[in-house]
Simulated scan of single mutants.
Amino acid sequence: MQVRYFAAAKAATGVEAEQLPAPETLGALLRLLGARHSASASDSAPALPDLLPNCSFLHNGVAVRRGEIPLSDSDTVDVLPPFAGG
């Protein structure tokens, strides 16, 4: 599956996107991402585990809120931290 990072999540991970084997659910993916990126790749960004509770997520372009959403290897999940500005 593809995971794409935006704004502060991109700064925290140091990558725009990564390919991973799909875990069973969105909740499992979030736990995996927190473990993979436990330290920030940037001095100016918080670590990803600190950002994830405030992030929004898109699953194949659709906003999701439940961790039980099933995932497959062909899916794309976007990690969207809160954005400022207008």
Results as ranks from 00 to 15, higher is better:
residue 24 E to W: 00
residue 24 E to V: 13
residue 24 E to C: 01
residue 24 E to H: 14
residue 25 T to N: 07
residue 25 T to Y: 05
residue 25 T to S: 12
residue 26 L to R: 01
residue 26 L to N: 03
residue 26 L to M: 15
residue 26 L to D: 03
residue 27 G to C: 03
residue 27 G to E: 02
residue 27 G to R: 05
residue 27 G to N: 07
residue 27 G to M: 08
residue 27 G to L: 06
residue 28 A to C: 07
residue 28 A to Q: 13
residue 28 A to M: 05
residue 28 A to T: 07
residue 29 L to E: 06
residue 29 L to G: 03
residue 30 L to G: 07
residue 30 L to Q: 15
residue 30 L to C: 05
residue 30 L to S: 02
residue 30 L to V: 05
residue 30 L to N: 09
residue 31 R to I: 13
residue 31 R to C: 02
residue 31 R to K: 15
residue 31 R to A: 13
residue 32 L to N: 06
residue 32 L to K: 14
residue 32 L to G: 03
residue 32 L to F: 01
residue 32 L to T: 15
residue 33 L to Q: 08
residue 33 L to N: 11
residue 34 G to Y: 08
residue 34 G to I: 01
residue 34 G to A: 13
residue 34 G to V: 08
residue 35 A to D: 12
residue 35 A to K: 12
residue 35 A to N: 15
residue 35 A to H: 11
residue 35 A to Q: 15
residue 35 A to Y: 02
residue 36 R to V: 10
residue 36 R to Y: 08
residue 36 R to C: 14
residue 36 R to M: 14
residue 37 H to K: 12
residue 37 H to C: 03
residue 37 H to E: 06
residue 37 H to P: 09
residue 38 S to E: 15
residue 38 S to R: 13
residue 38 S to K: 15
residue 38 S to Q: 14
residue 39 A to G: 11
residue 39 A to C: 07
residue 40 S to F: 11
residue 40 S to N: 05
residue 40 S to I: 07
residue 41 A to D: 12
residue 41 A to N: 13
residue 41 A to F: 04
residue 42 S to F: 06
residue 42 S to N: 13
residue 42 S to L: 10
residue 43 D to E: 14
residue 43 D to C: 00
residue 44 S to H: 11
residue 44 S to A: 14
residue 45 A to H: 13
residue 45 A to Y: 11
residue 45 A to L: 09
residue 45 A to N: 10
residue 45 A to V: 10
residue 45 A to D: 11
residue 46 P to G: 04
residue 46 P to S: 13
residue 46 P to C: 07
residue 47 A to D: 02
residue 47 A to Y: 02
residue 48 L to G: 12
residue 48 L to R: 04
residue 48 L to S: 08
residue 49 P to Y: 11
residue 49 P to W: 08
residue 49 P to T: 09
residue 49 P to Q: 07
residue 50 D to F: 01
residue 51 L to G: 04
residue 51 L to P: 02
residue 51 L to S: 00
residue 52 L to R: 03
residue 52 L to E: 00
residue 52 L to I: 08
residue 52 L to C: 03
residue 53 P to G: 00
residue 53 P to K: 02
residue 53 P to N: 02
residue 53 P to R: 00
residue 53 P to M: 01
